[in-house]
Design a protein around this nucleic acid. Structure first.
Length: 426
RNA sequence: GGAGAAUUGGCAGAGUGGUCGAUUGCGGUAGUCUUGAAAACUAUUGUACCGAGAGGUACCGGGGGUUCGAAUCCCUCAUUCUCCGCCA
């Protein structure tokens, strides 16, 4: 949620940042400012009435204790009148506040100045590309066929037991999955992130805190019997650890990591994009989350980008880094960098990581603050990124490392897999 | 799942309808004393919002209600603890 303060003080900057997303919010912002002014005057009026009521009530108490019943009764009739006006003003004040809130909730985050303007992924900027991939001839077979040949992943079995998008991994496939999780977690811990095992379901409050609710509830699996949501990413439980927290000083840099399955309904997805591991309802991911002062946020972002690059390089994958345009940037993010790896067999780039700065958008909803040097409460900045999401990494590894004698495993993983090559085990 | 008890400021813990934003202790901060420290003493010490300011309003687990007035009474939800049951 954008801070109302920011809209009051730097309206132009807010409008410009939203324009990056092709959103002209002039109407909403003007409306917010008008309502805000009205709300403040009603609030003042309300508080004055309440103050008066409090004074009289106190007086009544004093009169009663002195035994002056008659005078007390007289004052009582006066309060009745006051009370009805308090209630009336309160109702107006609350209504105004709700309207402002829902307008603020409807606005996405303000994009930073580096974010290119644009409607969709065609306007994304490629800012870096690194590594090489095998030729189409050398890596001809797509991962869904390799997975079958080598008995690594069983999609049909998943359909039988649950439904499409819920595959079984087995044998060396399961082991490779576990190896990737361990490797990514170890690397994150080595980089100073504290490892958490988190709940896989969250309550409504948490969904709101990170911005999944109320806008994107169709993306999450919901359990009405218990009013809980399956997490679409570890970002939700990890960031919500700090919901409602007031850090005592500016001397912090909080780094969290966690491995979780992620559950996404992916309503509306179809076609060849969903083939094999490309788009699943349940997949594994290692997430990194940071909570920083505004001053340190950009440095933290750069560190996270380097961390992801290091992972991809150690796996020997060709990758490129995109700076997403406004229209492709998620609702809550101020700026997002996507990492894509190249799949030779599919002849296309697959998104494997997304690293974002949220500035105060999440912390404003979370009420996550710290005390600055002047003992003033300020909102923290939050950041997060995938490091990494497994399925497409697995797809690229299988496809790009296939050979006549099996699929070779990158060296950094062999101590986790216990094998160097995937051989036919069906 | 059943029965009972509880939830108050950083922590401990008073407070059962009126001057209680809340006794007190510990802790924190500042000062006095001291070469320095400790001890002792003194002062200070929650959050958010409205207001140019003076000041005001709200908050005693969450929400609602009764009342001129609620930490205190009522309803409801959540959480914790104890006992029983079940269980990886």
């Amino acid at each position: 949620m954008i801070e109302i303060q920011r809209i009051r003080e730097r309206k132009e900057e807010v409008l410009e940042g939203l324009l990056k997303r092709n959103i002209d919010a002039t109407k909403e912002v003007t409306q917010i400012l008008t309502l805000d002014q009205e709300w403040r005057s009603q609030k003042t009026a309300l508080q004055n009435l309440e103050a008066e009521l409090n004074t009289i009530s106190k007086k009544i108490g004093q009169l009663f204790s002195k035994g002056k019943q008659a005078e007390a009764q007289e004052l009582k009739t006066k309060t009745a009148e006051l009370k009805t006006s308090v209630q009336a003003v309160k109702k107006i004040e609350e209504e105004l506040e709700n309207n402002i809130q829902s307008l603020l909730f409807s606005l996405p985050n303000v994009c930073t100045t580096e974010v290119p303007k644009g409607k969709d992924e065609s306007a994304n900027e490629i800012i870096e590309e690194k590594g090489t991939s095998p030729s189409k001839e050398a890596a001809a077979i797509p991962h869904w066929d390799l997975a079958k040949t080598y008995g690594l992943i069983d999609f049909e079995l998943g359909v039988k037991v649950t439904g499409a998008g819920f595959p079984f991994y087995r044998g060396q496939g399961a082991r490779l999955q576990r190896a990737l999780v361990s490797y990514f977690l170890d690397e994150a811990v080595n980089a100073g992130y504290e490892e958490y095992v988190s709940p896989l379901m969250v309550n409504e409050e948490s969904g709101k805190g990170t911005g999944q609710l109320p806008d994107k509830e169709g993306q999450m699996y919901y359990m009405p019997a218990d009013d809980l949501y399956m997490i679409p990413t570890a970002e939700v439980p990890l960031t919500n650890i700090y919901r409602g927290v007031l850090l005592p000083d500016a001397n912090f840099s909080i780094k969290l990591t966690g491995h979780t399955p992620c559950f996404r309904r992916e309503a509306g997805s179809y076609g060849k994009d969903v083939r094999g591991l490309n788009r699943l309802h349940q997949f594994e991911k290692v997430e990194i989350v940071r909570i920083e002062t505004p001053e340190n946020a950009e440095t933290a972002l750069q560190e996270m980008l380097s961390h992801v690059k290091h992972l991809l390089e150690s796996l020997g994958l060709q990758y490129r880094v995109l700076r997403l345009c406004g229209g492709d940037t998620g609702f809550a993010a101020a700026i997002t960098y996507d990492f894509e790896v190249y799949s030779a067999a599919q002849e296309k780039w697959l998104e494997v990581s997304s690293v974002s700065r949220f500035d105060t958008f999440q912390s404003n909803r979370l009420k996550l603050r710290y005390k600055d040097e002047n003992k003033k409460s300020r909102l923290c900045h939050t950041l997060n990124g995938s490091a990494l999401a497994l399925p497409r990494i697995m797809a690229a590894l299988l496809e790009n490392n296939q050979g006549p004698n099996g699929i070779s495993i990158p060296e950094c993983l062999t101590r986790y897999t216990g094998f160097k090559t995937i051989t036919n085990n069906t």
